[in-house]
Amino acid sequence: MIRERLSALAVMPDDVIDPLLWRLALDVAAAHQPNEHGDCRNLQCVGQRGMCTAARTARRAMTKARRPRPVAAPLARSADHHHAVGSSQTLARFRGWFTSTDPEAARGGRGWLLPVTVPAA
């Protein structure tokens, strides 16, 4: 009896960008299913407690084979069709990122620079 791979029967999600990686990862994940104690039932993973390395790697590969999900909503466009910078709350979070936190440097002092002359040894 010929054993069919699960990836040949599975419906691939629409957001898969690497079909070969996704199908291979699906087959590995199917071969490394947990038993009633939560350990891998595959004979190659005897003695490993919990989810085996192959199953963890297969899950990671299935995630990497798919298009990344957007983290934030797209920026709104203003009337002149330029991207909006963001809300005032967003801008307040980033205020001061590119300025020095040293009070001497903030006053225009040069206390944070290296000395101009190096003492002779």
Rank of each mutant, 00 (worst) to 15 (best):
residue 99 T to E: 08
residue 79 A to K: 01
residue 120 A to L: 14
residue 30 A to I: 05
residue 49 R to K: 15
residue 102 D to F: 00
residue 36 E to C: 04
residue 43 L to V: 07
residue 105 A to K: 11
residue 45 C to S: 09
residue 69 R to P: 00
residue 53 T to W: 00
residue 81 H to V: 07
residue 67 R to Q: 11
residue 15 D to F: 09
residue 36 E to Q: 13
residue 49 R to W: 04
residue 33 Q to G: 01
residue 101 T to G: 11
residue 14 D to Y: 05
residue 12 M to P: 02
residue 106 A to I: 14
residue 69 R to Q: 10
residue 102 D to R: 08
residue 19 P to S: 15
residue 9 L to S: 15
residue 51 M to Y: 01
residue 84 A to D: 03
residue 40 C to R: 00
residue 33 Q to A: 14
residue 20 L to T: 10
residue 42 N to Q: 06
residue 82 H to G: 00
residue 119 P to K: 08
residue 48 Q to T: 13
residue 94 F to I: 03
residue 70 P to S: 10
residue 61 A to W: 10
residue 17 I to Y: 00
residue 90 T to W: 12
residue 108 G to M: 07
residue 46 V to D: 13
residue 112 W to V: 04
residue 71 V to Q: 10
residue 59 R to C: 13
residue 116 V to P: 01
residue 118 V to E: 06
residue 69 R to I: 01
residue 2 I to S: 14
residue 105 A to N: 08
residue 28 V to K: 12
residue 26 L to E: 11
residue 15 D to W: 10
residue 79 A to H: 02
residue 111 G to K: 08
residue 22 W to G: 02
residue 80 D to I: 02
residue 7 S to Y: 05
residue 22 W to A: 03
residue 3 R to N: 13
residue 82 H to R: 05
residue 11 V to E: 15
residue 25 A to Q: 06
residue 110 R to P: 02
residue 90 T to V: 10
residue 48 Q to M: 09
residue 77 R to F: 02
residue 61 A to N: 11
residue 101 T to L: 06
residue 21 L to C: 05
residue 23 R to E: 15
residue 96 G to W: 06
residue 115 P to F: 11
residue 78 S to R: 05
residue 78 S to C: 04
residue 90 T to G: 15
residue 119 P to D: 12
residue 63 T to M: 00
residue 11 V to R: 12
residue 22 W to T: 05
residue 1 M to S: 11
residue 23 R to H: 12
